[in-house]
Amino acid sequence: MLEISELSAGYEGIPALRAVDFKVGDRARVAVLGPNGAGKTTLLKTISGVVAPDCGTMRLEGEDLGKLASHRRVEAGLVHVPQGRMIFASMTVADNLRLGSHRAAARDRHDERRELVLELFPALGGMLRRDGGALSGGQQQMLAIARGVMACPRLLMLDEPSMGLAPRASEEIFEGIARLSESETTAMIVVEQRAHEALEICERAYVLESGEVVLEAAAKTLLSDERLAATYLGSEI
């Protein structure tokens, strides 16, 4: 579905990705792991067009993404749930969800999708009229994911869904994502620090370090690969 080859990109002159090859199959769920600063977020931002690549190609079902402005990529079904949540704090939860349906293909399915996301994250149900800024960190993360799901994505990209959350909140998030992968057939890229949680919901995984892919394997085999821990902490465990 998504095919990336030889992709290099960076911010303000600092390279963050070096010649990355990356693939997501139809309906596949792919984890991207690696320590902080490995280039995981840059990879997602380059896919969604917020960061311009220095070189390399990106194709979504054969179509060259490089020619599409970022909002066109959303129209094409690429939906990015950014790191740090970026919910609209001054708008209500309901309005945040409505913005999720901004995509033309999702506009008419707003009510139906809203029911779905409230099933995924029941905690949001009672808060539709509250301002996004008044939610707790965990609830904001739920809202961010829910907002992405509203767009009926063909490929959903989740960037660090558990970042900065307490263990219980992060568990709730992963439960929601697991429910989503059961009910929906959308393809998914999950960028995570918490390797185990991500590997449990994905089939394949890429490990990035210093902007390069250092490991690519089935999720199950990675779960028992010591090299993964070494990329994080640099020591043998």
Binding site: Q193, A229, Y232, I237
Partner: peptide, 26 residues
């Protein structure tokens, strides 16, 4: 440094709470 990076709490923080249990099973 060596003590800190082999500290179970630190490994848990970096790799997720389930990793430790998993590593013990190995």
């Amino acid at each position: 440094p060596e003590a800190v990076v082999s500290n179970p709490q630190v490994i848990k923080a970096y790799l997720g709470s389930k990793w430790m249990g998993h590593a013990r099973d190995q």
